[in-house]
Design a protein around this nucleic acid. Structure first.
Lengths: 207, 207
DNA sequence: TTGTATACTAAACAAAAGTTTAGTAACATA
DNA sequence: TATGTTACTAAACTTTTGTTTAGTATACAA
């Protein structure tokens, strides 16, 4: 056994198929694989594909040109070396930071903030939320919603002004939009005067 | 003219090719396109592909099965509706936040923090940098480097301990690792006792 | 009015690619 | 010792797929 119940040859061929799709947006033909690995008979390659299919790494569309379809999640997991930014659990003295043992996983930003229709990003232009860790020019990721819970950091529009990022609280029937910076004052409004646009669910900063 | 110098039919066929690749990891054959659009003759489709090629939207690998290769950037730009989180410039009263006019672009996290070999992400486990906007359990994006400039926020290993995130300064030949929290003390060390592992280039927080 | 682009049908052909049959050899497992 | 898996060759066969030829019809610009 080589890796993940595959033989070395099967692993190499699966990798070649995966890479060909990445590069050319289409799977290789049996003869292309044969050429790459110097296997003169198409049957030689065919057998490898049958083995890969049996072991659940690929699907095949019978009789069709370039009918190899790697099972996506499995295959991507197998060949994900170097794809994405690795997340390390801790930095320890002596060892190189990116030693394989230290890597806990890959940072999947698409997964953290997927293409959901109700998400948008807004660049922050004041410093009223610095103590909440939201700085000028940070991007806040906002989930669109017309209401929010007390304690949420929200994007709200008040007095026909431009939107502002503040912490939402309620005191005696009034809405308080609290900055996280002593230099700014709490905005106190009647609920009818505040339009809540969404709740901040993430912050991204590039320095 | 329909969109981007294409006829309606050409646009539809290009979109079908694009979507087929997205869904099945391989381009359609000429006959598959014909089936989709009820074009009984392969020549009908062939002509459309020739037109698309001539107009620079696809490349073709002559004589090969599924040899249609959409020109990546152009095609992706054309069909990128809804892909990614939109970045809005500001939130204005009255208008729906995600109105097309407000969208400045799409948040491309892969572009912000690309798969560069020297990047890694580290989850912050203390609160010593809160005043620099780095909170407990934030992910910091770190560029690996053995030295850094004064003023940089760095990941450093001191005294055989686990790595720590601090601001780097130098005073009279000594290295100061300054927290951004008055509850913590500055770490003062001889340069030989400090291993700098990298510089913080980004922060990502999910709430 | 002539040429060019678009949008096709129908049929045939050639090349590419998948599939099958027959067989060899090494190696591990029961 | 028999059985199954791996890893192939060689050759033939079938199907799929790309390509070409011949032709129709419409619309538009020079």
């Amino acid at each position: 056994m080589y890796k993940a119940n595959l033989t070395k040859r099967q692993y190499e061929i699966l990798r070649y198929v995966h890479e060909t799709i990445e590069e050319n947006s289409r799977p290789p033909t049996i003869r292309e694989i044969g050429r790459e690995f110097s296997i003169s008979s198409t049957k030689g390659v065919f057998d490898h594909l049958s083995a890969l299919e049996k072991k659940g790494w690929i699907d095949r569309v019978k009789g069709q040109a370039r009918g190899i379809r790697p099972v996506k999640e499995k295959t991507e997991r197998l060949f994900s070396e170097g794809e994405g930014v690795p997340v390390v659990g801790s930095v320890v003295a002596g060892e190189p930071t990116l030693a394989v043992e230290n890597v806990e996983g890959l940072l999947d930003l698409e997964e953290m903030f997927p293409n959901q229709e109700d998400l948008f990003a807004l660049r922050v232009d004041g410093d009223s939320m610095v103590e909440a860790g939201i700085h000028r020019s940070d991007l806040v990721i906002v989930r669109q919603q017309p209401t929010a819970e007390v304690g949420d950091i929200v994007v709200a529009v008040v007095d026909d002004e431009r939107g502002t990022v503040k912490k939402l609280t309620r005191v005696e029937g009034e809405i308080h939009l609290e900055p996280a910076n002593p230099d700014y004052e709490v905005i106190v409004k009647d609920p009818s005067e505040v339009e809540i646009r969404g709740r901040v669910v993430g912050v991204i900063r590039k320095m």
